[in-house]
Design a protein around this nucleic acid. Sequence first.
DNA 1: TAAAATCCCACGAAAACCCATTGTATCCCG
DNA 2: CGGGATACAATGGGTTTTCGTGGGATTTTA
Lengths: 162, 162
Amino acid sequence: MALEHLFQGSALNAVDAKGRVSIPAFLRSVIERRGDARTIVLAKHETFACLSAYDPAYAALKHAKLERLLEKEETSPDAQLDYQQRNLMAFAATEEVPYDSSGRILFPPLMRRKGQIGDLALFLGTGETFQIWNPQLLLDDKRIPDDLKDIARFRLEERGQS
Amino acid sequence: MALEHLFQGSALNAVDAKGRVSIPAFLRSVIERRGDARTIVLAKHETFACLSAYDPAYAALKHAKLERLLEKEETSPDAQLDYQQRNLMAFAATEEVPYDSSGRILFPPLMRRKGQIGDLALFLGTGETFQIWNPQLLLDDKRIPDDLKDIARFRLEERGQS
DNA sequence: TAAAATCCCACGAAAACCCATTGTATCCCG
DNA sequence: CGGGATACAATGGGTTTTCGTGGGATTTTA
């Protein structure tokens, strides 16, 4: 699985009173080059206190990979349950949301709580996917490199003095 | 078998006094993109205490897959019986129900009992198909990942405090 | 004729849509 | 090279549409 277009860069956007957020244009352009959907898929990140996001085409790719894995070791009794659990997490525990002509999504309340997103959303490109953080939680996480925290601080300052 | 449109997301809907339930709009949109039917097929899930649901187009696909499997290992003595059993389950043990213009089905009593569905139906997208749960049974199932139970609890809360 | 299914309409909340404003980066031309 | 015009991004607000749901009326079935 070698994706041609990768997510990169960072941005800090506001979540308004209605729960709307602009998806940064540089991330949207990757989504639309990977497929022709104007939609993102949201999931709780596996290891960090943030959300993981990607495009539907990437979700389909991941699913196909799972399917192939199952067909290989279909016989095993545990494999069946393992497959069911993965499938549930990959699809039931995610939400697909379209963005409108101005590039905004309506943040689903479930994901907003899972990611503990307040009125600021920090977007971080990570190649195949991107992440959405509550900036403060990123600053508080000891596992995050200082250089990255500097970027988060910069984005916060940018916004503070305007 | 690479399906283009996949079921994902979750929702908790009410089953009213007449036994009617709204199929969530985001699931219906997948059904209608896969084919032009406004119908779902219901079956008891193979491993969980819930129902499995999908569109007629997917049922046809599953059938074709079974056929191919049979032709491959036709020689085996067990294969024939296995095929007969699977075929029975795939067709006799299922019910096809149309949904109306407002997206509701009338829940067939047999399936409602098989799935132990009360007055709340939890819908979970799982890619090729989706599941319908009695939310309490999902919470009680030890095989279900905690993250998914959190989602079920969230859906229950959403509804409770309104 | 009673029970059940289908059709119809109605309502409130939420989501999607449209338009307007601001700020910023980009481009073009003098 | 500078400065004005331009395009686009992010955001705010109002309006329209859709969704889930309840209930009544009509038709069908047993």
